[in-house]
Simulated assay, not measured.
Amino acid sequence: MLIDSHCHLDRLAEDANPESLRPVVERARAAGVKEMLCVSVSQKGYEPMRRAAEPFEEVVFSCGVHPLDIKEGFDQGWLRQHAQDARVVAVGETGLDYYYSKDNIADQQRAFAEHIEVARELDKPVIVHTRDARTDTLEILRDGQGVEGVLHCFTENWAMAKGALDLGLYISISGIVTFRNAEMLRDVVRQLPMDRLLVETDSPYLAPVPYRGKQNQPAYVREVAQYVADLKHCSYDELCRQTAENYRRLFRR
């Protein structure tokens, strides 16, 4: 059972039109993808995201505001209201990004902590984005007192991965692992325990080899899974089985 644990289907749709997404979903089905987690990044984009992907039964959702989008608005009450939806399986994408934005670090940290608070209230995991903020990310997660979640599209070092694993979190690997200059990430993947591993596309971004430079889509999670299986010296079927089990455990599927 192959699952894309993180994608942005609304970015592949035209004007939030579900029919424009149908070929994307059908290609994913043909590739063996059984479920896709469509991830929210902003308040204003949440409803269009839902409209675009709502008709497809293999799609579930998250609700949250990306650290680079909180400047456009973030209200914890809005998050609490929408994250209660039964089809919303996670809170986020939230976290910290000091690589692209250092002028609102305090706001990022506050929003991250408020996402975690809602996740704990609703007993749902958080989807975490982190870049150039290793220490603060782990500290805020530690303050979350056992909140469950995943560091998505992981690109950090083994020390960061180990810190997250020690907090009970999962690590999700995207097509970046196939890039020529991603040897540090490949070394991390080799060390990751199989029972904490997820795979994703983060589509429409970061298409894996051999599609690099093209628009990414959930069907290409197959290439990510095969590459990770080779790094882990296991079969493709075993990698799919284990990552699907991990996904179901984390997101209560």
Rank of each mutant, 00 (worst) to 15 (best):
V88N: 02
N104Y: 15
D230R: 07
D195E: 14
P48S: 13
A52L: 11
L79C: 03
R27P: 02
V91Y: 06
F112M: 13
Q84G: 07
A161P: 01
S40N: 08
E156S: 15
R196V: 06
Q226T: 08
R87D: 12
C63F: 12
W158S: 10
D75M: 11
R27E: 15
S235H: 11
R29G: 06
L239V: 15
H115C: 00
D97Y: 09
G144W: 09
K124I: 08
D4A: 01
Y98M: 05
L21T: 15
D97K: 08
K34Q: 12
E58G: 08
A113V: 06
E72W: 11
P125E: 06
D69Q: 13
C7H: 01
H129N: 08
V88E: 10
F74N: 07
A86L: 04
I176Y: 11
A133E: 07
P125H: 10
V199H: 03
H66M: 08
Q43W: 11
A31F: 03
V209F: 02
G73R: 14
G77R: 07
F112G: 00
A30W: 00
T94K: 04
L192A: 01
L122C: 09
R87C: 01
F74H: 07
V126M: 00
R29D: 03
V188Q: 04
P193D: 13
P55K: 05
E148N: 03
L250Y: 00
I176E: 11
H66I: 15
L21V: 14
V88R: 02
V59H: 04
G144E: 07
E26S: 01
L250F: 05
V221K: 03
V41R: 03
R120W: 05
C7M: 14
G95E: 09
E58C: 06
Q215I: 14
A53L: 05
A161G: 03
